[in-house]
Structures are given as C-alpha cells and as structure tokens.
Design a protein around this nucleic acid. Structure first.
Lengths: 158, 158
DNA sequence: CATTGATACATGCAAATGCATCTAGTTCGG
DNA sequence: CCGAACTAGATGCATTTGCATGTATCAATG
C-alpha cells in the first residue's frame, strides 16, 4: 500500500478509466445520432441485440440488466415498451415462477437485424480509421479482461 | 471496399466497440453505486470534475457538452441544479454575449475534491487488479487515440 | 446598417429514469 | 409442513431527460 509508486499507480488507473469513459462517450454520441436509431432508441436496440446474440434465444431480465446501465425498474419499463410494440415476448420462467424470460418476436428479430446492419457499418466507419487491426485486437482484449475482472469483484467499500 | 477481409474487419470493429462499451457499463455500474455518489449524482460530479481540470477554471457550456453524454437542454438543467446548490456559477462570456461561462464556487471545488479522492480510490481498486501497469498504459493510449479520431470526424451517414 | 441565417443557451412539455415499495415465488431452519 | 428471510420483477411517484421551440446574440451579405 505504500510502495514508492503507489500514488502514480492510482493516478494511472484513474487516467485510464477517464480515457476509456470519454472515448465511450465520443463514440456513443456519434452512433446514437445516426439514422439507424430513428426508429428505436439505442437502449432499446441494445436489449434486442443482446437477445439476438443469446444461443437459447431467451434471457432472464436480471441477466439483461447486468449488460445495460439501467436500474431494474427502468429495464422493466423499457421491456414494457418493447412488448407493447410487439418486438419481444415475456414468458414466466419454467424453473422459477418469479422469473421472466424474454425472447424476440419475429418482428423484433427483423428490426434488430435491420438496425444492426446499419449500426455495424457506422461502428466500422468510426473505429476502422481510428485504430489498426492489431490495435483493435488489443483494445478488445484489454476491455474484455477489464470487464471480466470487474464483474467478478465485491464492492469492498469502506 | 471489397478486399477478402472486409467483412472480418467490420466484425472486429464491432466486437471491439461492443467490448469497450460493456466494460464501461460494468465499471460505471460499480463506481456509481459506491458511497462517493450519495451526495451528488455521477453526471453532476462529472461537470464539477471537468471544471476542476480546466486551467482557466472556466468553461463554456458547449465545451462541457462535448465531454458528457447529455443533450444540450439536459446539461442546461443539470447546471441549474448545480447552481441552485451553490456549486457552480454562470457568467456571461465576455467575448460572446450568447455564451455562458461556468466556474466552480469555493464550495463546489471542495465537494469535487472530497468526492474525487474517494472516486479515484474506487477506480484504482477496480482497474488496478484487472490490468498490469503496462496494460493500463496501452489501454489509455488506445482509447485516447480512438477518442481523438472520432472527435475529428464528420458523420458521413448515407 | 438592415436583413437573413446561424449559434448559444433556456424553457414547455411529454417521455424515460430511479428510488422506495409492493407482490409473488423460492429457500431454508425448525 | 410452517414461517422468516430472500430474490425476481412490477408499480407509484418525484426527478431527470430529450425534443421541439423560443429568445438573444453573432456573422455574413447586399
């Protein structure tokens, strides 16, 4: 806790997070202002996307909640909206009566694909020119490592 | 536009962004749930922080708006709240009567420092164990490069 | 310097969000 | 089996957000 470089280690971590955060803001701002998200807000698309990547095609609400930066109640209501538009379906979880399984409808799957294609192009246009392929691979590796480490951590506040 | 690996380049960019985004969500979720932000929401702290880093101590609202993921109107009202709490001050820009310069009050500066100290510790606790110093330096470099590239880009939609 | 268009920020209003709480289903100790 | 503690998700309500628009200032053009 008191090595010669303890404070510089703390500073480096803070600067790294700050830079990661600002780059996320910059990219996200561009992406969400694009025409891909005129028909559906990014956060709602993100739920459709998450469902589309899931092998079983179904996810519990709390699993989805881990992936998006929304409170439980906000996600519940976001899903209300998606359901009202006929893009997803709620089902009671078979093994746990409290749980809700969410799945894409045909229409939801189609909309996800349509937006997804455009979205992926937008991403490539932003990230492609910014970083070499090698740099992208490294950024992918580092952020994945960071996410994995953070996901498996206790708060430890105090 | 049609090299053999065009589609895999697109996929890599998309996966890289996805990973960056999810890691940001995971870290942010931990950070904002900590006790550091009981007294002030993260977004409001972020404005205080941004002002505290600024050499002149003053920033235009539109400059701040570039750094945070908020609409212009939401930032305007967020600043209302900060002003009402006596943490910042609005001044008309001397060289441009339309503009508003924002600066920290003494009280705002103190609160920023108090929260900031705790916040930086939390960050170090999350990022420090996740990545080596070398990896953090590389992540810092890559995200900074990405941000700089994206900031200087036209939308190019269509 | 009048006019037209653009830029910076504020505001009305509807929609989204989060906190606290509620309901229902599950788990565990006896 | 029963009841207490726990978990998943829904809901009431106040706050926050964004879109559209308003107001004031600036810049460009004739």
């Amino acid at each position: 806790m008191s090595s010669p470089s303890a404070s510089s280690a703390v500073r480096l971590a803070a600067e790294t997070w700050e830079s990661l955060f600002r780059s996320q803001v910059a990219v996200m701002r561009k992406l969400q202002s694009g025409p891909a998200f005129k028909s559906l807000p990014v956060k709602e698309y993100d739920v459709l996307f998450t469902l589309s990547r899931c092998p079983s095609g179904q996810l519990r609400l709390n699993e989805i909640n881990d992936k998006v930066l929304l409170s439980q109640s906000s996600l519940s209501r976001l899903v209300d909206r998606l359901e009202k538009r006929g893009l997803v379906e709620r089902t009671t979880a078979p093994d746990d009566g409290r749980g809700v399984l969410l799945s894409l409808t045909e229409s939801g799957s189609e909309l996800q694909k349509t937006i997804g294609r455009e979205h992926v192009r937008d991403i490539a246009q932003l990230v492609g020119p910014a970083l070499t392929v090698e740099e992208q691979r490294e950024l992918l590796r580092l952020t994945e490592k960071l996410r994995a480490s953070v996901a498996g951590h206790q708060p430890t506040h105090g």
